[in-house]
Design a protein around this nucleic acid. Structure first.
Lengths: 103, 103
DNA sequence: TTAGTATATTAGAATATTGTAATATACTTA
DNA sequence: TAAGTATATTACAATATTCTAATATACTAA
């Protein structure tokens, strides 16, 4: 796979509400699947499928520990990426409210 | 739309080989549709559809100038986002080659 | 006004992604 | 060993995305 496709794979993996939610939960640190499953509204198998996509995109790493499987964010850059996307949206919202005030 | 969905919209817009290519072309500066269309292998209508998605995700801005329509990257953060994704992939590749050398 | 040029939109078939239910695997403990 | 628990995989129907071809719009120039 070439670099462009690898980049698309990362972006695609993050471009889903459930998966973005999972990654954001992991910003604070490692969690096992059971913890990720807690306040989430979809099935266990679905969560597992999303985790696989995030693993294969090299966004998360998996560590087995007995019955449990722990997931964590693989690199600092992924965290930075999330923050930048958040910043872009914050700016958008700021612009929108500014426009509304001026009219 | 809430913040999470806006973030997903941005990531989704970038998560396509053609659209990522378009945005990368625009990293160097503004281009009109005709210039974007040059060494690209798909139809004009398809390019136009991709540009619409990038516009609606607030990634690009459009400026009309007579017959031409110019596109440019809306914010510095988008540029940063692209660089970070590139960095993640570079690191991945470095790790892969390291593993291969060690085995 | 008419013709030409650049870009956008629409419709629809082909393809990809999604979520659920059922099943499988892997580990632990009795 | 068998039963139980946590997680992963598979199959598939439902939904979303993609690209192309055809058509529409918007501007310019004759």
């Amino acid at each position: 796979m070439d670099m462009d496709n690898m980049q698309v794979k990362i972006l695609k993996a993050l471009a889903h509400p459930t998966r973005l939610k999972i990654v954001k939960k992991l910003l604070k640190g490692t969690l096992c699947v059971c913890e990720l499953n807690e306040d989430i509204d979809f099935s266990q198998s679905n969560l597992s499928q999303h985790l696989k996509i995030l693993r294969e995109a090299n966004i998360l790493i998996q560590e087995k520990d007995g019955l449990r499987v722990n997931y964590s964010i693989k690199s600092e850059e992924v965290t930075q990426l999330i923050f930048i996307v958040e910043k872009i949206v914050e700016k958008e919202i700021k612009n929108l409210t500014k426009q509304m005030g001026g009219e």
